[in-house]
Nucleic acid binder design. Structure first.
Length: 729
RNA sequence: GCUGCUGUAGCUCAGUGGUAGAGCGCCUCCUUGGUAAGGAGGAGGUCGUGGGUUCAAUCCCCACCAGCAGCUCCA
């Protein structure tokens, strides 16, 4: 006997071995028909699962339950795989899991699928759905299953099987086993192919097998499926809406920024309107930084290579840096010699030996030091370092910290001065790989709102807490209230970290305590620390549900060590300070890009590049409109004047499309009584106001950062992606 | 960096083996209009770059560059 406990608490009894679907049917035939899967004691299973003795808790899952939909998506992946295999019989299936908002299937196929193929695949899927064949699960002992897979000569499935756990492997056949399409798969699945919902094949893209860039590239076919046609349409519509707020599109339309291939990939040109937004953000932050005891500094965009050798950034991150600048061939040679001297066992290539032979005619000293490698390594390094002090290459700075450290070391520091908090909107350059560059969110040149706090170990907890508090200040300033904190901790088993256990323990504790004290929603992730210290990242959720990583706070015992930083303590002896690296916005480029999408281009008044557009109704009111515009500007509002010969409707339309918060319509009527007629970009007409009242209201709204932009309602899909949430295939 | 797709006017996009079009924008003129597009005329393109095939290439082929989607990566 099986005692089945239903969600409402009632218990029904069935004979041992009863199928889930039979239990449901006994309750309600309709429920049995609607269910796509079920949950037994918290585990999602399919309807054909047999229940054996004891007591279980059972919940039916319909396709509109999240977990039911998940199962349906997994099944849809199988149906799509079957369709593809029918259309292209030499397809090798690899892996096909459900993901957020849909599913995908990785395939190995010589034919490159195109969007035209999608329709054929969908048509074939529709037939399979119509046939409504059952998903039949059958199991085999592992060795028998392996023989079967060997016979099918699909190395990917064999690989999947080798990775699977357990003594038996399960297969799913859509229809009678042996006579129908089948696939190695853990399941569970919907009862039959007719139950996968309203689907669409959406796109195809490359994906590495097991996500390993050294492995072969497969085709990943993405599809989506929803409980019904309406939900599918809503989803597709939402994707369109998300596209509309794409910062690249809005940046173009609103004249915020541009990218010129002639300037370079991933290098942002801030147009006046975009620059205004950035300027406002920077000013707001500067004011706060000064209030909190930060000191603002400026440092150059480049620095000597030796600076970055000392910091460890060069050549360690060479792959993601622009190539070094060398003033002379000798400087280039010195750098190469330094690299060779530093890396035991590295051999110079014949071409290099030739280069050195050629140039060595003019630089006999280098030849002596570098080739042949007669001198001991330490000696060679010492001599090269001495030359480098005279002649060296330069690097576009990948980070600001080495420069800030030089400011720290430029004077003797007393414990009385600490903490020293140096802040800079510092431009840095990182050579992102070509495929990574994307709009403003992933660029090769960007401005960090960077700061470095140099403090005593005792001050560290307070300083971290201060950084956390400042981060919250910034997020609040923008109105990004939905965020969490990720604490990146050291993986005790990994060797990649430097520094003493005691330092790590202290730093991690300080981070934890600060986050806890601020009562932040946080998660800890082991192995996510920087190699020199633990960190916390602020992850915000924008108004359509996407997550973005913004600021970060990192504790660093490493650079103070490498640069030999000191301060004189109370005991009149030298001590080593601790550094905290932190950014709040992250990068100005990325942050503004995120804001564009978050606000869908409708910036709140205080941030809007153009706050007011004054539109004259006719030429008769043009002079008055100019007066109004001038008054607005005097009051500090970023104002545009439209005295063109267009009709008022066209002027309003054009300002509305530029998403200007307030449109002031002024005609003869307003002129007579010194008024302005206020209209918003949302189309609301506030009517006539005295100009002074309007200006006062704007001043208040700006000062309070009043949220004038209602977030669009409804929930949008998370970023299109492939977070695998269920094993399958 | 990898796989696939794309590259035509400032923007969004049609189009053809015989050197090109629309809408919006821009300029000029007319219009002086009261809350999301008034009318007319005009200017503007080496069809991403470089090779190749061809009598002839914007179109077909190759390479490169750039963009897009995804994968991988992000001190």
């Amino acid at each position: 006997m099986v005692k089945v406990q239903l969600p409402d608490g009632t218990v029904v009894e069935h004979p041992d071995g009863v199928r889930v679907v039979d239990v449901l049917r006994a309750l309600s035939p309709r429920l049995a028909d609607q269910a796509v899967a079920a949950k037994v004691d918290g585990q999602v299973v399919e309807l054909s699962t047999r229940l054996t003795d004891g007591q279980v808790k059972l919940t039916a899952l319909k396709i509109d339950d999240p977990e039911g939909l998940h199962v349906a998506r997994h099944s849809a992946a199988h149906v799509m795989a079957e369709a593809i295999c029918q259309l292209w019989p030499n397809t090798k299936l690899v892996y096909g899991p459900p993901v957020d908002n849909g599913f995908y299937y990785d395939i190995d196929l010589d034919h490159s699928l195109t969007p035209e193929d999608f329709e054929r695949i969908e048509a074939r899927m529709a037939e399979i759905v119509k046939e409504n064949r059952p998903f039949v699960r059958y199991e085999m002992p592992r060795d028998e299953a392996m023989r079967k897979l060997e016979a099918e000569r699909n190395e990917y499935k064999i690989d999947n099987a080798l990775r699977a756990e357990g003594d038996t492997l399960s297969f799913y056949s859509t229809g009678e086993p042996g006579k129908s399409f089948e696939d190695l798969c853990r399941g569970p699945h919907v009862p039959s192919t007719g139950r996968i919902g309203a689907f669409k094949v959406r796109q195809v893209a490359g994906a590495y097998h097991h996500g390993d860039a050294t492995k072969q590239m497969l085709q990943r076919v993405y599809g989506t499926t929803w409980p019904n046609k309406k939900a599918l349409q809503e989803y597709l519509h939402m994707m369109e809406e998300a596209k509309k707020r794409d910062h690249r599109k809005l940046g173009q339309e609103l004249g915020l920024f541009t990218i010129s291939p002639l300037v370079g990939t991933g290098l942002i040109l801030w147009k006046p309107h975009g620059a205004t937004i950035r300027h406002v953000l920077e000013e707001e932050l500067r004011k706060e930084l000064i209030a909190r005891g930060y000191q603002l500094v400026y440092t150059p965009h480049i620095g000597r290579l030796d600076l970055y050798r000392t910091s460890g950034h060069f050549p360690y991150y060479r792959e993601s840096q622009y190539p070094p600048l060398f003033e002379s061939e000798r400087a280039r040679m010195l750098n190469r010699l330094w690299e060779l001297a530093g890396e035991a066992g590295e051999q110079a290539s014949p071409a290099e030996i030739e280069l050195f032979s050629d140039v060595a005619a003019e630089h006999e000293d280098l030849r002596q030091a570098g080739y042949p490698k007669s001198a001991p390594r330490e000696e060679r390094q010492r001599r090269i370092r001495a030359w480098l002090a005279v002649e060296d290459g330069y690097l576009l700075k990948p980070m600001n910290c080495p420069h800030h450290i030089q400011i720290y070391t430029s004077e003797a520091r007393s414990y009385r001065q600490l903490p020293v908090k140096l802040a800079e909107f510092g431009q840095v350059y990182r050579y992102e790989k070509s495929g990574e560059v994307n709009g403003m969110t992933r660029v090769r040149g960007f401005c960090q709102d960077d700061a470095h706090v140099f403090c005593t170990p005792q001050q560290l907890p307070d300083e971290i807490a201060e950084c956390v508090d400042l981060s919250q200040f910034v997020l609040k300033m923008i109105g990004l209230t939905d965020y969490r904190v990720r604490i990146g901790l050291r993986d005790p088993d990994s060797k990649k970290y430097i520094g003493s256990d005691e330092n790590w323990r202290m730093a991690q504790e300080a981070l934890r305590r600060s986050v806890a004290a601020a009562a932040l929603n946080s998660s800890e992730e082991v192995g996510e620390a920087a190699f020199y210290g633990p960190k916390i990242d602020f992850v915000v959720r924008d108004c359509i549900g996407r997550e973005w990583q913004l600021g970060t706070v990192q504790v660093d015992y490493n650079l103070p060590e490498r640069f030999g930083l000191t301060y004189i303590g109370e005991d009149n002896s030298e001590h080593r300070p601790v550094m905290v690296h932190r950014t709040l916005f992250g990068s100005m480029e990325r942050f503004v890009g995120i804001l564009i999408e978050h606000f869908a281009g409708k910036f709140p008044l205080w941030l809007a590049p153009v706050q007011v557009t004054v539109c004259s109704v006719s030429e008769k009111s043009a002079a008055y409109a100019a007066e109004v515009a001038a008054a607005c500007r005097t009051a500090g509002l970023r104002t545009e004047l439209d005295n063109s010969s267009e009709r008022i409707g066209a002027k309003i339309r054009s300002a509305t499309m530029m998403k200007v918060p307030y449109i002031l319509v002024v005609g003869e009527q307003e002129m007579r009584n010194g008024a302005v007629n206020v209209r918003t970009r949302e189309g609301q007409q506030y009517g006539s106001f005295r100009l002074s009242d309007f200006l006062a209201a704007c001043a208040t709204e700006i000062a309070t950062h009043g949220e004038k932009t209602p977030a669009p309602g409804g929930q949008a899909p998370a970023v299109e992606g492939a977070s695998v949430t269920h094993a399958g295939g």
